[in-house]
């Protein structure tokens, strides 16, 4: 009897350690990024593009990467929405009765979801070489949108799944077509959940480095057209961190801080949006 009790206490102790380990990891990561990033974070960093000698520690900032990342991820998110929302609606409104088929699509999406972004990046680059397209914002947007599409569809699908069949029937009984039901009733019913799903995809898009490594190129200018190459935040961090010069490395830390703040902001916003919508959380 006593042994049993000891065993439980021992494992409970391990459980506390595990929970603390996870919590501590997050705080350690965020803390160390803030600690190293704050000292070199300045207004110049976020408001100017790199000037001559920036990569030797001279003046300038990473506005090009911030704007580039925003362009890229907003573009990719919109492009993915253009396909993702119709697919998710199709699965939940038109195909609702073909349960096995829809579950097949879900299974397929879950498989796609796990494909590493580097594979998309390498493949995207090959296609670009084949078609003779140069590295550009457009190429990046297309690659990233392909990479986030399964994530977005699956997240939207989780939300749309929760629309009760009674509401579907009510809408049809009023004489609406299926597309009217889809766009006027289903979308409206699930707005907070949809917003969360889209923010989640946006977060993926802005944080991923491997898929844009070969497709967007890198430049010190803010792109003025989608055919121009662009810098992105993850790559700005990656490249600056590889520098032997201390000042440049410390800028990598503050760039990392900026990216972390953006990601935390997205997380907070989606939490606020979905506060009313806690019943069906999107799980990944």
């Amino acid at each position: 009897m006593k042994l049993k009790k000891t065993e439980e206490i021992f494992f409970k102790f391990l459980m506390y350690i595990s929970v603390s380990f996870i919590t501590a990891s997050l705080f350690l990561i965020v803390f160390s990024i803030f600690y190293k990033g704050l000292p070199s974070l300045s207004w110049e960093m976020v408001s100017e593009t790199p000037k001559g000698g920036f990569y030797f520690g001279k003046e300038g900032g990473i506005l090009n990467a911030i704007i580039g990342s925003l362009y890229l991820s907003i573009g990719a998110t919109i492009l993915a929405m253009l396909f993702g929302i119709p697919i998710a609606l199709f699965m939940n409104v038109y195909l609702r009765k073909y349960n096995r088929f829809v579950n097949g699509i879900r299974f397929f999406l879950d498989l796609l979801w796990g494909i590493p972004s580097i594979v998309y990046g390498a493949f995207g680059f090959t296609i670009m070489v084949m078609l003779g397209i140069k590295t550009s914002l457009l190429a990046g947007i297309i690659t990233v949108s392909i990479f986030i599409l399964p994530i977005m569809v699956r997240a939207l699908d989780e939300v749309l799944k929760t629309v009760p069949v009674g509401l579907f029937e009510a809408s049809l009984s009023l004489g609406s077509t299926r597309s009217e039901t889809a766009f006027r009733v289903f979308l409206r019913q699930t707005i907070p959940g949809l917003a969360t799903a889209i923010l989640l995809s946006f977060g993926r898009a802005i944080g991923d480095a491997a898929s844009v490594l070969f497709t967007t190129g890198y430049t010190d200018h803010i792109p003025t057209s989608i055919m121009q190459p662009t810098a992105t935040l993850p790559l700005a961090i990656f490249f600056q961190l590889g520098s032997p010069i201390e000042e440049v490395r410390s800028r990598a830390y503050s760039s990392a801080l900026i990216l972390t703040i953006i990601i935390l902001l997205i997380s907070v916003i989606s939490r606020i949006v979905s506060a009313k919508y806690n019943k069906h959380r999107i799980k990944f």
Partner: peptide, 20 residues
């Protein structure tokens, strides 16, 4: 089929107001 359905109003077991 939408025209057929329009001919008939449906009242379900519990109310399903549209999200508006």
């Amino acid at each position: 089929v939408t025209a057929i359905r329009k001919k008939m109003g449906l009242l379900a077991q519990r109310p399903y107001p549209l999200p508006m």
